[in-house]
Design a protein around this nucleic acid. Structure first.
Length: 444
RNA sequence: GCGGUUGUAGUCAAGUGGUUAAGACACAGGAUUGUGGCUCCUGCAUUCGUGGGUUCGAAUCCCAUCAGCCGCCCCA
């Protein structure tokens, strides 16, 4: 048996890295005033269709969508009774009955919960963070898995650019605290429903004369999503685009003002940024601010963190008109970047005491002592393998136990034993019934 | 969805048609009958991702399949 393609086991030998980044993230969020939210593994498919956008790659071809087979059967039966034309029943069913989709991203579920739980009725803004697994059916490659994990934050109800700046500052502070310095923040504005359509027309008229010189995919993008042409990696397309108009030069007054303030606030917080007019996000809900944190060390998937403002999302999924801004960060990519930069993770905890049990007679007293120490908060362990004393000592050494104690018939008869400090080799005699003094020696 | 590449023990690997598949690390046991790290000794793949085929003979050649890795697209 093997694990599904594109999934990963986080092994005991690796998990301390996850604990470290998770606890650092939680602590940064605490200081910024964000509270954790946990949403379900799966949602009704329509949430993502409406929230993320039906035409996006994520929704149109990467979602893990499932449905309840009994509902499906009932649905077909009903249609037959109604004598309805069952053309593409499966698709029909999934649109009508919703189906369920494993969440491919974190923002839409959080927005759904914001609306469903009427959080907009509380004092605003609402500031939340999440740590979650996401699933997307893509071809795995470096820094890309089918099940991956995200940190993210969302701020609802704040129109001002200080909220955009704050969410960026959360990511920036977090990564700095982990020791990451050579990671670049790129910012842009993708406009709003006021100015973006106008810009599209300007861009299309610029491109219309050059259309035949663009690559095939860009020619397709011309009608569907002309913005995407800007970040085509094909060098010949890029050559045609040097003079291309950029969204930033065609923002409406409101977006222009917002972007200017964002820069001011970032500077006030000491967050360094680079303006990249070519950032285009593939999720439909972004308006105004879009940003990415880029690392050059994890293969082709260089975006460690991506986010922006989404003023239309909450209304789109049926809530009151409410602005929002936030980011998502790939935990696997983050850890890869930390490793590529040689950043050390805090060493995993090691046992405080290993109790060497000599022979089966000693095992009951050893197990008993182990338990008493554990109840006192000590990480204590003893032999489960029936090993010789020497082998148990080797094992204790391999586990990096800081102390050992040998329990044999002598110790049990006399009620005294030698606790050995494994680093110094020093031994201290203790009464094996005096738990507090054993604890005192171990805590040194 | 498309393209490239790799597949020999827990890990890194040698082997490129001819009897028992190197080596290293790891793991396990031992080296004066009660104390770890160093050293030494011993053990550890009836089998080379899987299934077919070619051949007197296949880890080595061919086909298929699966898996991993990398890239495109897109995204975290």
């Amino acid at each position: 048996m093997n694990k599904p393609r594109g999934t990963q086991d986080i092994l005991p030998s690796e998990v301390h890295k996850w604990h470290h980044v998770e606890s650092t993230f939680r602590d940064v969020c605490r200081r910024f005033g964000y509270k954790e939210i946990r949403t379900p593994l799966f949602e009704y498919t329509n949430l993502f269709k409406r929230g993320v956008g039906e035409t996006t790659d994520v929704v149109s071809k990467e979602m893990y969508t499932v449905f309840n087979s009994r509902e499906y059967t009932n649905y077909i039966a009903k249609r037959e009774l109604m004598d309805a034309p069952p053309l593409d029943v499966m698709k029909d069913f999934m649109n009508d009955k919703n189906g369920m989709t494993l969440k491919p991203e974190g923002t839409a579920p959080v927005a759904r919960s914001f609306v469903e739980n009427k959080m907009y009725a509380d004092s605003q803004p609402t500031k939340m963070y999440y740590v979650t697994a996401c699933s997307r059916h893509e071809r795995p490659q470096a820094g890309r898995l089918r099940q991956f994990h995200q940190f993210g934050v969302e701020i609802f109800s704040a129109y001002g650019a200080s909220a955009d700046a704050e969410s960026i500052a959360v990511a920036d502070t977090f990564m700095r605290e982990l020791g990451l310095t050579n990671i670049e923040l790129n910012i842009n504005s993708v406009g709003c429903p006021e100015c973006r359509p106008k810009y599209h027309e300007i861009l299309k008229s610029f491109l219309s004369s050059k259309l035949d010189k663009l690559c095939e995919t860009c020619q397709e993008r011309y009608e569907k999503n002309p913005l995407r042409i800007l970040d085509c990696k094909n060098p010949s397309c890029q050559a045609e685009l040097v003079e291309a108009p950029v969204m930033l030069d065609h923002l409406c007054d409101d977006c222009e003002d917002h972007f200017g303030k964002l820069k001011t606030y970032l500077e006030a917080m000491g967050v360094e940024y680079v303006i990249d007019p070519k950032i285009v996000r593939g999720l439909d809900y972004y308006t105004k601010t879009a940003f990415e944190f880029i690392s050059g060390e994890i293969g082709a998937q260089s975006t460690v963190c991506g986010g922006g403002r989404y003023n239309k999302l909450v209304a789109e999924i049926g809530g009151p008109e409410t602005p929002g801004v936030g980011f998502g960060m790939g935990i696997e990519r983050l850890i890869m970047t930390l490793e590529a930069n040689g950043i050390e993770f805090p060493a995993p905890a090691t046992p405080d005491l290993f109790i060497v049990a000599m022979g089966e007679e000693a095992l009951a007293p050893a197990v008993g002592l182990t338990q008493k120490l554990r109840l006192k908060g000590i990480s204590a362990d003893t032999d489960h393998m029936g090993r010789s004393m020497k082998a148990q000592m080797k094992f204790a050494d391999k586990m990096n136990a800081t102390h050992t104690v040998v329990l044999g018939s002598n110790e049990i008869d006399q009620g005294k034993a030698q606790i050995k400090n494994m680093e110094s080799g020093e031994q201290t005699e203790v009464s094996i019934t005096d738990i507090d003094s054993i604890v005192a020696i171990i805590k040194g």
